[in-house]
């Protein structure tokens, strides 16, 4: 018998093992739901699968009677727009300041302590201020996401710039590079894949800030919806919405990873 650390699952085995926890969770849910519903047919906590399927149908395929919109899609679109703008802006700021801090010692001396302090402010504590300053509209939600992700991306990228070997920076100078050329041809191109990684790691907190902002003040959005229907204990809607949010987040992460692999094949080989 080989040691446990030397026993490897085959390809099919790994897949099966990966699926197993999901199946188990599903099974536990179905059993628990059946048990509760057998005791009380009006129980709302763990709705039956067909109740959930009905709700999904109502929300994803039928027009809402009051607004004429298909709610799931309006909510998804509203949330993705906010998330996309927040992440896009956060990544842009993160890249600009991160590279500037990483490359230019004067900028580093001026901004590094400030950014470090900024990143320690809990973004959710800023939310009331954002609502007061930017109003209850889209802007404050986007700003919250930016506020939450930008300092982290900045610090991460500044570190990554610092990880470029000193030899490369010296070499570029002996090839005649100015600071600007060095940034453009040596530093930035090596930061793109790192930026994508950094955004991937920020996805989780970006969703957190989005849902928090939507829960407090919004008229549409995935976070708004689940907090709205919570009033009626509508678990048949909350559960699929949570699953849907998870699926979207997972897909975004996967697509970003794919993008990074496609665009920056040199990354795989150098590390």
């Amino acid at each position: 018998m080989r040691r446990l650390i030397n026993q490897l699952p085959g390809k099919g085995g790994a897949f099966g093992l990966g699926v197993l926890p999901f199946l188990l969770l599903f099974l536990v849910y179905v059993l628990a739901s059946d048990a509760r519903l057998a005791e009380n047919a009006n129980d709302k906590l763990l709705p039956a699968l067909n109740t959930i399927a009905d709700s999904i149908h109502t929300y994803a395929f039928e027009e809402d009677k009051r607004s004429g919109n298909i709610l799931l899609w309006t909510d998804t679109w509203a949330s993705l727009k906010r998330l996309g703008m927040g992440l896009g802006l956060g990544a842009t700021l993160g890249l600009l300041f991160g590279v500037a801090v990483g490359v230019v010692p004067y900028v580093r001396a001026a901004l590094q302590p400030f950014i470090a302090a900024l990143s320690m402010i809990p973004p959710l504590a800023m939310l009331p201020i954002l609502f007061v300053v930017f109003g209850l509209d889209e802007l404050s939600k986007v700003v919250l996401i930016v506020f939450g992700v930008a300092p982290v991306i900045m610090r991460d990228l500044a570190l990554r710039v610092g990880e470029i070997p000193r030899e490369q920076i010296i070499k570029a100078q002996t090839l005649g590079a100015s600071t600007w050329q060095l940034v453009l041809r040596v530093v930035l191109p090596q930061m793109w894949p790192r930026l994508i990684d950094s955004v991937r790691l920020s996805l989780g907190s970006a969703w957190l800030f989005l849902i928090a902002a939507e829960a407090i003040a919004a008229t549409e959005g995935l976070g708004y919806r689940i907090f709205l229907v919570r009033r009626y204990m509508a678990m048949d809607i909350i559960l699929p919405y949570v699953a849907w949010i998870t699926l979207i987040a997972f897909a975004m992460d996967y697509l970003l990873r794919l993008l990074s692999q496609r665009l920056y094949p040199w990354m795989q080989r150098s590390e």
Binding site: P165, E167, G176
Partner: peptide, 20 residues
């Protein structure tokens, strides 16, 4: 007092650009 194109350098490692 800084590196320039009149003095080239080859280090033991890391002096090529991996992304090019």
């Amino acid at each position: 007092d800084e590196p320039g194109p009149d003095r080239g350098i080859v280090f033991q490692r890391y002096s090529v650009f991996p992304h090019l």
